[in-house]
Computed example of a mutant assay.
Amino acid sequence: MIKAEHIVKSYGDLQVLKGVDLNIEKGEVVSIVGASGAGKTTLLQILGTLDRVDKKGGTVLNINGIDITSLSERDLSKFRNKNIGFIFQFHQLLPEFTALENVCIPAYIAKKDKAESERRAKEILTFLGLSHRFEHKPNQLSGGEQQRVAVARSLINDPALILADEPSGNLDSESAENLHNLFFKLRDEFNQTFVIVTHNTDLAEMADRKLTMVDGRII
């Protein structure tokens, strides 16, 4: 699913990633932990194709059978939309749209049929216990419901990989626990791969593997 070798990333004179090696199998739930500034979010952004690796000799970044480093910006955008779902600490829902419309946005970007996209969105929202919230806007939803809508949005294009950055960091303990359990339910149901950056000890320990980053490297 993911093969990364010698991932290096610098911003000016600051080297954030210092040769990260990473192998993740399909269907794994992997947590990444470490102190602030260790490079966790930068690594997640590179795996999500939101940022590019430095062009260094020996660098390999292969996701779902595709050499990411060789893609143009246009092809990278298409790859991201089709293969990767994102869940952030702050749900990043668009306030002017309903839950259903927010979930459908990635499908619309992919130019999928509108009726089929809405049918699929309703199916996912129902699976997540939100069948009564289709027409509600984000400010009418609880924090846990907003995050579940964000999860549904990440699933709408049936991506092979879900990347989550502090997904429960803005939730109360009960909502956080429910979200954590949901990730494993989704993995078991859809065989998706999850890479989760978190400071939440419980979530980190639930994962199939816990990786620790220190000073730009996985130890």
Rank of each mutant, 00 (worst) to 15 (best):
L163A: 02
K122I: 00
L171K: 03
V20N: 10
Y108C: 08
E101M: 09
H136L: 02
I162W: 04
K40G: 12
C104H: 07
G27V: 08
E166F: 09
I196T: 00
N64K: 04
T198S: 09
L211H: 10
K56W: 03
D172N: 00
S70H: 06
V60R: 14
K185C: 01
G216L: 06
G129T: 02
H136D: 08
Q146M: 15
L203C: 02
L203W: 09
E25V: 00
V29R: 04
G37N: 13
Q45D: 14
D67I: 00
T212G: 01
E101N: 06
F90E: 10
N64T: 02
I46H: 11
S168Q: 01
A152I: 01
K185N: 06
G34H: 13
I87E: 05
S72T: 14
A115K: 15
H180C: 00
Q140K: 08
T42K: 09
L130T: 01
D158S: 14
Q146C: 15
L17W: 12
H199G: 02
E166H: 06
S36R: 11
E25A: 15
G37D: 13
A121D: 06
V16R: 02
Y108Q: 15
I66H: 13
G216N: 06
E166P: 03
H91S: 15
R148K: 15
G34C: 14
R80E: 09
G144R: 04
N64Q: 13
L100D: 10
E118L: 02
D13W: 07
S131R: 05
L76S: 15
G85D: 09
L71D: 10
A99G: 03
G12E: 12
E174P: 02
T193P: 00
S154D: 02
L125H: 08
N157P: 05
E189T: 10
L130P: 06
N83L: 00
P95S: 12
N181Y: 05
L130W: 13
R209A: 05
V30N: 05
L141N: 10
F86P: 04
F97R: 13
T126D: 14
F190R: 06
A164H: 08
R133A: 14
L161H: 03
K122A: 09
Y108N: 12
N170D: 13
G34F: 08
L43F: 13
Q89A: 12
S117M: 05
I109W: 11
T69Q: 08
G27S: 12
V149K: 12
N191A: 05
R80T: 01
S142W: 07
L128R: 06
I68N: 08
R148N: 07
